[in-house]
């Protein structure tokens, strides 16, 4: 069960996405950089040159280590690159949300949560 303490401090949204998605979401005002020496951003821009291990690390950082993130937005085509981690992440917090990007339309077949919904109804 999720107790109040686990999500009371979660205020921020995080995003892993391509340049356009990140720019748009930052314009909406979700960007946050922690103060102090080890400034941490809550967003990661992924392009064709970004290593998969780097995405993986960011995903782990946002989902496991940071306790102030309530929702993690990730472009679906990027989630596809770390599909195993996304599928095996089952905790309610933070909520991992796969979003479409400009170049990659949304495919409900690949969404990890919709997959679970479909399994539930035995389809």
């Amino acid at each position: 069960m999720a107790s109040a303490a686990t999500y009371k401090d979660r205020q921020l949204l995080a995003v892993i996405g391509d340049e356009d998605s990140v720019t748009g979401l930052l314009l909406a005002g979700i960007g946050h950089v922690t103060e102090g020496a080890d400034a941490q951003r809550n967003f990661l821009v992924v392009d064709s040159k970004t290593e998969t291990s780097q995405i993986e690390q960011a995903f782990q950082n946002f989902t496991q280590e940071r306790k102030d993130i309530a929702v993690l937005l990730i472009n679906q085509h990027i989630a596809e690159r770390i599909r195993h981690s996304v599928d095996s992440f089952a905790d309610p917090f933070p909520a991992v949300l796969e979003i479409p990007s400009k170049d990659h339309p949304y495919d409900p077949e690949k969404d990890s949560v919709l997959k679970r919904v479909r399994r539930l109804f035995g389809e």
Partner: peptide, 10 residues
């Protein structure tokens, strides 16, 4: 981007 303007509370 420095401070989150858009936040959520549960």
């Amino acid at each position: 981007a420095k401070q989150a303007r858009f936040r959520v509370r549960a």
